[in-house]
Nucleic acid binder design. Structure first.
Lengths: 114, 114
DNA sequence: CCTTATATGTAGGACTCCTACATATGATAG
DNA sequence: CTATCATATGTAGGAGTCCTACATATAAGG
């Protein structure tokens, strides 16, 4: 990612990275670098996925069968590993969204003093 | 907490525990066990703070000067360590809430495909 | 030719959370 | 009286995720 220094850390909301990645892949297969760009841009530059988080995460997702990958060529003419979400991955995404919403509502209740 | 097994893990939203604890202390000083009960009940039993997360978290908060503590007696007549939020802790809470909201909005944008 | 953007990956460490254990007391059931 | 449960605090050890920093490689542009 270009220079710009200190965006918000997604560290605040750990455990959401897999969900974000899977979501970007529901539209079309993408390579890692493009996934990170998508998340950065869609979030208005608030979320930055570091390489050291991105590639291990993709390996994790593939290991769990939620994505598959193949080497291909990016629009820039460089080799790139394209990831495709699987049916299992879509189910997982659905569950993560439910869980996320549930916990979010719960946190909201605590923060509002119920 | 009584037997009941598998509530939602706050692991999904790591880094929010400090915020939740500080929030419960804005109303009145509480001891650790009561803080966990508050979070559990206010969240409609969705969030469960385990002992192994609770007490280290309280030590962390105290180390950072966001809470102070003193031994006292709980309503049940047992000794308990009561925690009070400091001015610095209230500032910290405000910042964590801002950050949380900002990241949440960003995640929402990504999940909606913007 | 040098720098920048694109592109993938690993190594090592920090941090937070979890499970499991250890300890102690007041209340309640048998 | 004694066993168990709820209350109450704490530690030890480990799993998992994320970060910083490094290593590598190529295409494009100045």
């Amino acid at each position: 990612m270009g220079g710009a220094g200190n965006q918000e850390r997604s560290e605040l909301l750990k455990g959401t990275l897999d969900m974000l990645i899977l979501k970007t892949l529901t539209v079309q297969p993408l390579h890692g670098y493009a996934i990170a760009q998508q998340i950065h841009e869609l979030s208005d530059n608030v979320l930055t996925v570091e390489q050291g988080s991105l590639y291990p995460a993709l390996q994790r997702l593939q290991k769990k069968g939620w994505v598959t990958s193949r080497w291909s060529e990016s629009p820039t003419g460089r080799r790139a590993r394209y990831y495709t979400i699987t049916a299992s991955g879509r189910r997982q995404l659905g569950q993560e969204i439910s869980s996320f919403d549930r916990v979010l509502l719960a946190i909201h209740r605590v923060m509002e003093g119920a």
